[in-house]
Design a binder for these strands. Structure first.
Lengths: 135, 135
DNA sequence: CTAACTGCAAAGTTTTTGCAATTGC
DNA sequence: GCAATTGCAAAAACTTTGCAGTTAG
């Protein structure tokens, strides 16, 4: 679980990507990070975006979010534990407070688990804007 | 949320795939379902496996599981709500009982949520077999 | 009979990677 | 300087799809 500190450089590309992730709230895909980054660095490539996202994830500075109904991963910057809500109508992803009861859970009591690294809670449904009407 | 009953046939292929899913416990990928099914139907194709998994999912007879650290989806048959544990060392996926506190949660109180369809809880860590040693 | 389904192979999507050139430190 | 990083393009990995032939009902 230790955060390996590997030799690395502060490139403009990495800084811009990290900045986009830190804005928060948007849960962008690699593709949208790529487009956003191009506004600042017109020559940045999609490969570089992916490589940096993987690097940042290894450093614990980015998290990957995979919903059940979208094929691409979304990403977010480092932030306190929270759950995610995914609207299957407009595809938006929103942050939710993590239910307090989950924080207190003792998973280690489960006979098949040795150590727990992370919890991921996804709630799926319709957001307020899309309304409760039938899908 | 209604389960659309669309015209369909009971093909050998679909039956075999459903049978594999019902065995439970294994959380197979499309690829491993394909290999397992070939033992019974040596000519079944991967495309047919994917088409049937999508069909069964639409009918509510199969669920897709996407972990954060694996690129392919896993699948399981219809079963009571439960959580999943994913060992990042051996990549195995285990079923966990859903914490009772989650069942009682009133997400609809969240201002941004209109309706909730499903909950997905993923626990990541090391399983008993892989042990608590550093990764 | 006929529409749902299949096998096959080609194509689509998303992510990774090899390589020569660039650039932080 | 030199190794980490980049852009580019090719490849890999996973999933979907078009089509002609097959099959359940």
């Amino acid at each position: 679980m230790e955060q390996k500190v590997k030799k690395s450089r502060n490139t403009k590309q990495r800084a811009v990507i990290l900045e986009i992730l830190r804005k928060g709230g948007s849960h962008p895909t690699a593709e949208s990070i790529y487009h956003e980054a191009r506004k600042t660095l017109p020559n940045i490539s999609l490969g570089t975006v992916y490589r940096n996202l993987n690097f940042l994830r290894e450093q614990g500075l980015a998290h990957e979010i995979r919903t059940n109904s979208e094929s691409s991963s979304r990403f977010e910057g480092k932030c306190p534990p929270h759950a995610h809500f995914h609207c299957t109508k407009c595809q938006s992803v929103l942050d939710l407070p993590l239910p307090p009861c989950l924080k207190e859970l003792e998973w280690n009591g489960e006979s098949d688990i040795a150590t727990v690294n992370s919890l991921d809670l996804h709630v799926t449904g319709a957001c307020r804007e899309c309304g409760p009407a039938a899908s």
